[in-house]
Design a protein around this nucleic acid. Sequence first.
DNA 1: CTGAAAGCGCTAACAT
DNA 2: ATGTTAGCGCTTTCAG
Lengths: 345, 345
Amino acid sequence: MKKKRISIKDIAKHLNVSVTTVSFVLNGKAKEKRISEEVTKRILDYVKKINYKPNQLAQSLRTGESKILVFMVEDISNYFFSKLARIFEDLAYDKGYKVLFCSNENDDKKSIELIDLFNERQVDGFIIIPSAGIENKIKSLQEQNIPVVLLDRYFEDLEIDYVGIDNQKASEQGIQHLIDNKFKSPSFVSIDVQQTQMLGRLEGYRNIASNENFEAKELLLPYDLKSNEQGRAILKEFFDQNQDIDSILFATNYLTQLGLEVLKNHFPEKLHNLGIITFDDNALFSICTPSITAICQPLDQMAEKTMELLFELIKNKKSTSKYSHQKLDTTLEIRESTLSLSERS
Amino acid sequence: MKKKRISIKDIAKHLNVSVTTVSFVLNGKAKEKRISEEVTKRILDYVKKINYKPNQLAQSLRTGESKILVFMVEDISNYFFSKLARIFEDLAYDKGYKVLFCSNENDDKKSIELIDLFNERQVDGFIIIPSAGIENKIKSLQEQNIPVVLLDRYFEDLEIDYVGIDNQKASEQGIQHLIDNKFKSPSFVSIDVQQTQMLGRLEGYRNIASNENFEAKELLLPYDLKSNEQGRAILKEFFDQNQDIDSILFATNYLTQLGLEVLKNHFPEKLHNLGIITFDDNALFSICTPSITAICQPLDQMAEKTMELLFELIKNKKSTSKYSHQKLDTTLEIRESTLSLSERS
DNA sequence: CTGAAAGCGCTAACAT
DNA sequence: ATGTTAGCGCTTTCAG
């Protein structure tokens, strides 16, 4: 029952040819190396018959390529990341690559451990949603000539390929939409972290606050939130102490979730009177009551662009390619939660 | 800039010892092999200083172990699967394993391709949520002595470790809960597929229908649904033609999502009058209006149990371990959508 | 056109 | 207590 794995050597022996010949044929170099049609066919037939599969590990060790990419996200169970992951998976498979997902919990230590881990496994490239303090680690990857593309956020001082959205603009559009629908004092709920995506969103909010002359009301939750419980408590306090705010932009779908829970449980009437916008969509936001207006990131486009950049790096590692910062446009999916009060049923 | 990777040989040369010694020390066999304290220390220090990391690929090739597990799901972007994935990830990392996730789309061809693919990479074990027709492939893995544990569904004729829930019982509890809350004619929406989990859920429904003497109304959507659009159309038709049903059990969270969309868009009043239960929770179900009663699978427990079984297989591959079918209990998370009509506001 | 052989980096049986 | 060496399975150079 315990079948020994068949190796290229077994095949060679069985067919009375050398391993070289088999290897050439298997790698489609039969023509190039001018192996006779007859031998080629014999090998191919036999290989098919015994259903031989080369040991990819050995292949990788020899060639230095693993055909594996790593996609490192904050939390693979978050809708935004898992959707992206799914798209990457498909794109990569089409090109003969597999994708390893891992969650860094937006934690530097974990991020670095993970990067080292996979680096030792000679993965061919990284797509990383970086935590705040791993700039140097990323840099060291670049120095080792390992393809890396950052997603969602980047580091100001690092010359590196990046794909994300125009956060400031997205935020501005969202807030402007609230203003257009007669909300007078939009507030902003985010995380207190120095990452480009969050800073952009905050800046967009402040810009409109200043343009439209309303007082900015910001709630920045701690970066290292201990629990959902704590998050809800903070949000509840915020709502308690700021009865006058009439609308909110949540800077991530995770916060939106917490916020909606608090509203539903403690301020049910507000749930129907507040203007609510969330960054990042979720399939269920459209079936909430009210359904939630969302700033949607163009996931397909982001994934495609990222892959494009990554494969450029993989193909011609040495070329001093210009680094590209892609800031894609978002879409505002307008739903019930931002209807002006007069329009509501 | 282009640093050559440091190998164990370089270290040996630099330190004037043999590679064996280095290897032993690195693998914590210094004591066992009675390497002198001094040499051990020298090696460890140097290794730390140059930040040497062994090439795992070579290590795997040599040892036949890769410290990689594969978790194959239907769709990594589905809440149920991505939550499970996240838990597996953590459990595995604690044991020094990494987890590769992949989505098979519940498609046999894709499943088989993926299994072959990873098998060539000598992964150490598989956790598989199998599509309907890959019984033989699974069997062949077992014959190659590769650890496999099935999750969520199994094959009647296959002796294999499996972790899941008691679907029939879960379904019965759900329907009984509807009956207890004065719903007279619960209906059942599922997928038309011969997989154990779905069959169990259906059977549970039918049991209560027969016990409680109501007419079973089942909608089984085609296995190979072309699009969400098509799914919504079928659901809409079902609601149109069965105005008399007063409650629904959706057999997967995906169907619930479609169903809620249809209800919200076409039968808004029903959304508030129907009794609704969903299999599988989602963070957002608790903030829908009405919030949705859910049959929750014990994700943590499932993941732990699965890992336990998998590691048993990994440890003592040869022992003719008895196969274990774990059917865990679910929890009914009661929310607004199943309040009896008299209790609703 | 095909084969012999080196070597990717590591482990471990065998020598010393 | 430490070193020598034979592979793991594959690719590829160099020699016929």
